[in-house]
């Protein structure tokens, strides 16, 4: 197990908020591990499946990793931005693992992540495909890609997203409307990319 503690994460986050862009790369693995551990933890707790939404996991990770009393409110948005990225990574890694190896992964991992995905899966959302089309969108418009990550995997509101990206809420709202329509179309039509 990698050794780190909440003070690591808090310190890195402080760097990130102070404008050190490279700090995001350091924070990402911490958050990634924590999210996976959380998924396992929740399973052990015999937790009812319906609370295992990806956004809830992200928020729990924040509470676990960050000593929030040291931070300002908008620092949290920065954290969530990183965590959203980690969450997408986890979900796609997992989906890929399961596609290639039906028996792959520890048992708890399979169960919990399945739960986390249950809502989407019941609607036939293919996470891998979703992730691919988000990447395609990000090529065309990096900001729209970011907005989708923050909203979908981080659970941020329009206003929060605007704070993270340092643009106006109106811009976020327009971009989000376009991104949504574009992604829905891309997901519905496999040739449309």
């Amino acid at each position: 197990m990698q050794a780190f503690d909440s003070s690591d994460a808090t310190a890195i986050l402080a760097d990130l908020c102070a404008g050190d862009g490279a700090a995001a790369d350091k924070l990402l693995p911490l958050v990634y591990d924590e999210l996976r551990a959380l998924a396992g933890h929740l399973f052990k707790q015999e937790q009812a499946a319906h609370t295992l939404q990806p956004t809830a996991l992200v928020h729990e990770a924040y509470l676990k990793l960050i000593r929030a009393d040291h931070l300002k409110l908008n620092d949290r948005a920065h954290f969530i931005a990183v965590a959203a990225k980690a969450m997408r990574q986890i979900l796609t890694d997992y989906a890929r693992l399961r596609r290639t190896d039906k028996r792959g992964g520890a048992k708890w991992q399979r169960v919990t992540l399945d739960d986390a995905l249950a809502e989407w899966q019941s609607q036939n959302v293919d996470v891998l495909h979703l992730s691919e089309v988000i990447d395609q969108l990000a090529e065309l418009s990096p900001r729209q890609g970011q907005i989708v990550d923050l909203r979908v995997f981080g659970g941020l509101t329009i206003e929060e997203t605007a704070q993270v990206l340092q643009v106006g809420p109106t811009t976020v709202k327009s971009d989000w409307l376009i991104a949504k329509a574009w992604l829905k179309r891309a997901l519905a039509d496999p040739c449309a990319s």
Binding site: E119, A181, R185
Partner: peptide, 27 residues
């Protein structure tokens, strides 16, 4: 085609509309 696609409800995106993180402690 975008307008048509946007008419369709989608589990991921249209849910997101209502799921702001931490309602009540908005930024």
């Amino acid at each position: 085609s975008l307008l048509a696609a946007d008419e369709q409800e989608h589990a991921v995106f249209d849910k997101t509309e209502n799921v702001g993180l931490a309602r009540g402690t908005r930024l």
